[in-house]
Structure formats: C-alpha cells, structure tokens
Design a protein around this nucleic acid. Structure first.
Lengths: 341, 341
DNA sequence: ATGAAAGCGCTAACAG
DNA sequence: CTGTTAGCGCTTTCAT
C-alpha cells in the first residue's frame, strides 16, 4: 500500500527552513499580498529546495474548494465528444480548474452512479449530456447545490441550464434540403431514440418537416450509436431493392457505415441514393463523396459550458441556457432525387 | 463566492441522527466490517436522509489517498487519444479511481506546467505521452515518488516504464509492404519530428528499411499533426508532377488530407500513387479507397496502463514496461507501383 | 508584516 | 461491536 506521496514536505518544513511561520508560507502561496518581498523570496527558495507542492486535500478541506469540474458523457471515443471535452479542459485550465471525466455509455443508471462518484471526489460543477436524467439524481444535485449544465441541446424551458444546439430545427433543415432536391421517399437511420433525447428530437424535426410536405411514411431503423453498428444496420437497410431515395442518419458515425456499405451493394451515391449525417466530423469532408451533414460546433459549446460554470462558481453569476449555432453543410452525398426510384 | 457545497452534512450529523458515534459512521462508509447490520442500516438511513456524501478532501487528507490519476496528452481531439483515454477511464472506474485529463499540445513546457497542476491536485499516478520530457519534471516526479507511465511507445531501456508500440518495426513494416509492391520512389509526410518522438521513430524505421533496399533519397515533408495541416501539406506535395509513387504518412490524420486532395489534383489512388497511414482510425476502412495503415490498439494500451498504475499504487507492484502489439492493415490505398513513375 | 492557534471533516488507533 | 480522541496539512482570524 503505497502512500500517495512519500518525499513529502509541508508548510511546516518550508516555514522552518525559511525561518518564518507557517502562516507566512501560506500567504506566499496564496494572495501574495502582505508579505515583504525578501520574506517571500526566502520562502520560495525554501519551497523550491524542498520540492514543496501544496497538499490539495488539506487546501480543499480548509477552503472548501476543490477546483475540479466533473463531466459524465456517454463516451469519449467519438469525435464529437472528444472535441467537446478538449475545449472544456482548455477553458477550465485558463483559470486553474481540473476536469474529471467519466463515461457511462447511454445508461441512465450508470450515469447516476458516475455522478455520485464525482460528487465523492468533490467536484464543484457538473456537466451532463442531454436533458434526461434520473430525477433522484437531479434532486441530489439540487440538494447539494451543485452547479449543473446539460449540454448538446438547447431547451429554454428545462429547469436546469442547457447549452447546446437546436436539434429540432436542424432536423427540419436537413429534411427540407432533401425535399428541395425532389426526394419523396425517405429512410431514417437513427441511434437509440429511447436513450438519447437529442436523437429523438432530431428525428422529430425530420418527421415534422416531411409531414408538412405531406409525407408520413418514412421508415425508421434504430441501431446502436457506433461505427460497427452503423455498418451492420447499413447492410440490412441497403440489401433489399431500395424503396427510398434518401437516407437520413442522425449521426455521422452511422452515415459512415452507409458510405462504406453502399458501394459494396452497387449503390451509387448520390445518383441512386442521397445520404446525410449529423455532426460534421472531420472525415465528412474527405469521404467519397463528401457527406452532407449538420455542423455542430462542439468546441464552442465546450468553451461556453466551462465559462458558464466557472463564472457561477467564482462570481455567483447564474448559469444561463445558451443556444449554440449550427448549420447545414451540403456536400456530394446528397443530390437530386433519381427520376425513377 | 459560492461555497462548493452548501447543503452539506458530515459524519457528525449522520452520527447524531443515527444515534451512534462518528467512528461508526466512518466504519459503515469504509470497510463495513465490524458493524452490526442493524447499526449499519440505521447509519445508512440517516445518511440517505441527510443526503450525506463523504467529503473527499477530508478523506484524502487523513488517508493520504486521492484516488485520482492524472494524464497529460497533446490533445483529446484525435481519435487515437480519445480511444486511449476512454479505455483508461473505464478501467480506472472499475476500482473507484477518477481520471483528471489535461492537454498540452506538443509543447514540452506546457506539459511540465500541466503536470505541476495535476500534482497540486493530488494525483496518485501520472500518464504521459512519449518518452521525452523535461528532465526537471522527471526529477520532481522522482522526488515525489509518483508512479509514472510513458505511453504510445515501448522502450525497455528507458528509465521509466513505457507501455506502447514498437513504432520502429512498424515503420519498417509499412515501408517493406510498399517495397514489395515494387515502389522505388518515396515521399514521407510526417508530423513534427522534433516534438514527437514516436513520429521520429516511425520515420527512422521507414528510412532504415528503404536504406536497406538501397534507397536513400526519400523526401520528407513535415507539418503540424492535424487534419487541416495535412490538407495543406498534401496540396503542396501533390501539385508538382509526382516524382514518387508512394506517400507514407506517419499518421492517419495526415493521410486523410492526402486522400482528400489527390482526386482534386487528378491523381488516382492507388493506380498512380500509393498512400499509407498510421493508427488505423475508424474511417480508414470507409474512405475511398480504404487506407492502408498500421493498427495501434490504443484501447488495449489504455487498459494496460491504468491497470499497471493501480496495481502499483495498491499492491506496490512494480510498473513494468509493456509492448502492445500492432499490425499492418492493407487496404485499397496501396498497390503495385505504376510501371512508369 | 508576521506569528500563534483554532479548526476544516474525516480516519484510525486505542479503549472499553 | 462501538465510542473517544488525536491528528492529516492547510488557511485564517486575531494578536502583536
């Protein structure tokens, strides 16, 4: 059983070596005011000599501050989340905060457990994905008065602050794009709607737009939200003779599978089939053809989220919900509907 | 100035409500042995009623344990690192450890600063990328007796444990693959060799293999290690009439740019040009053509790293260097050299 | 400008 | 099996 730190030296040693009191050492390492420059130097010298690093546990205990923010997301292994975390981490770092990450797949129970673990670790703020969480968890968070931001979607009505996109409108936009190109028969490939609210909202936007155009028979295939699952789903969807001319995917990772599978089935994109995604990952510009998708600036969302949390913690500012812009990016994977589907 | 926790309740309150001593409460929340079941239940009930969550700072202070591991990597926004972290996080979670992530680009000074921040946060173990670090930093880590693992490369000779791939041999392997296909003129597109040791090692492997085949005039282009930079580099490399038939990229993110740019320049892959990557990201199987690359199982590396660290911390086991297997994946982007380059 | 001393909430002997 | 008590290393009044 290894002690976390062994060659440890505390304020005490530093104080002794510098010939001052522990209070002075503490002052030097905090708001350096009220310390004579030469005293300060003596302390710093002693500290360096002893390799002194303040003990965060003791610090946290007395100040009741941990300078850590927690985040629980489905996975890190998805460009969209990776970029998001990357941005959060960098913004937090500008003010000395650390980020503790935890993943939970799309399992609500797991999410709750992970949050509890983070709570035990003393986080001062929490970032969650989406707006559907265990009510008991939300109660606990409220009881602890822990700042929380729900991300990836924007919902001004939600009782907790949300920072994210207007998934509904974007769903409508991408459907409209296809309708404008003359498509009348559609298939939707989505992630698990029951587990992911923003997926459900995207689908709803698509369906509503189609509905308004008098189309109400779009088929929906659901699958897990990862590359392999997308490939498998694509195989199933694309084998039979196509009875649709447009395939809308609620996520690029799913569209990737379609792009891979279509040529194998002899289906040409976009001549025979238009395909669209959601997220606009890097590769969407590279694939052949390029993938029409909705660009969701997750980096911007991360910055905003981190900033909001820190402003709340340090200045008590309320965390306001925030709409992050997103927009359609049209590429080669979508085009005019073939004359004879 | 928001207190981190406000509706707080400590062992004391719980003890009083449950009609026991603080020691008993502590026992219940730790090694539940030596506590009568009904006492235990009373305590748990009281705790639940009060929304009690143990204060981690106090806990860490008395036990001298933080149950957190720190990692400093260049970026999270790269599939390779994202997958790596994802795996680490999940493995750590199995034993109640948290992961604090920090990014530093490819800047050694920044790396040192970030590590110091993590040190201040009380991490019990540290994960770094590569094996080139500020000597002073390494001294500090040694002085604090902090377990460290250097990842992404394997080097049995290195004074600190390394867990990663044999980049050199893989560099040789991919060059050999191309040589076997009759290629005799090469161009290498690499990330910054001065900043990234494993990149340098990969390049060295390639060069050595070519050298052994009597080829010593391979040109090398260096660029930043991200998608945009890869695109730009590809534009420069591919404009002039090609004086090489194989383009080896030291990373898939770079190869992605090449795959995007080649068709724009009217260059057909692999008929006119063979392209290879390194990492085998998801999209490598999807792109058109698929990208020949070296598969580096970053998830496996993450698991091994996390496991080694925890075993060291809890059982004092030495952290042994570990070679993670990697292998060549041949796809459509590489083929026989065109007869007339 | 500096020092002395009182805890922060918890765990871990040590008693009983 | 349970209670009492002494710190863990630090910050922070309150004196000086």
């Amino acid at each position: 059983m290894n002690k976390a730190v062994s060659g440890q030296s505390g304020v005490r040693q530093v104080a002794k070596l510098a010939g001052v009191s522990v209070a002075t050492v503490s002052r030097v390492f905090n708001q350096a005011s009220n310390v004579r420059p030469d005293t300060r130097d003596k302390v710093m010298a002693a500290a360096k000599q002893l390799n002194y690093v303040p003990n965060s546990a003791a610090r946290s205990l007395t100040m009741n501050r941990s300078y850590t923010i927690g985040i629980v997301i489905p996975t890190i292994d998805n460009s969209i989340f990776a970029r998001f975390i990357d941005a959060i981490e960098q913004t937090l770092a500008t003010r000395g905060y650390g980020l503790i990450v935890a993943t939970c797949g799309f399992d609500r129970h797991c999410e709750s457990r992970r949050v509890e673990e983070l709570l035990k670790m003393g986080i001062e703020g929490l970032i969650l994905s989406g707006a559907e969480h265990d009510p008991e968890l939300l109660d606990l968070i409220a009881a602890r008065n822990l700042p929380l931001v729900c991300t990836s979607l924007f919902d001004a009505e939600y009782p907790w602050p949300t920072i994210g996109y207007d998934n509904y409108t974007m769903g409508k936009a991408i459907a409209r794009h296809l309708l404008d190109h003359g498509h009348r028969t559609f298939h939707i490939l989505s992630g698990p709607q029951a587990l992911i609210d923003r997926t459900r909202i995207r689908v709803q936007g698509i369906l509503d737009e189609l509905q308004e155009a008098g189309i109400s028979d779009a088929a929906i295939s659901e699958t897990e939200l990862n590359f392999a699952a997308g490939c498998e789903a694509a195989q199933n969807i694309l084998t039979a003779p196509l009875n649709f001319t447009a395939l809308l995917c609620t996520s690029d990772v799913l569209a990737m599978g379609v792009l891979l599978e279509a040529p194998r089935q002899g289906i040409r994109i976009p001549q025979q089939l238009s395909v669209t995604g959601f997220d606009d990952q890097d590769w969407a510009a590279v694939s052949n053809p390029g993938l029409t998708s909705v660009h969701t600036p997750s980096r911007r969302m991360g910055d905003a989220t981190a900033q909001a949390l820190m402003d709340n913690i340090e200045q008590g500012l309320p965390v306001d919900s925030q709409l992050i812009d997103s927009h359609l990016v049209i590429r080669g994977s979508s085009g005019p509907a073939p004359s004879a589907p």
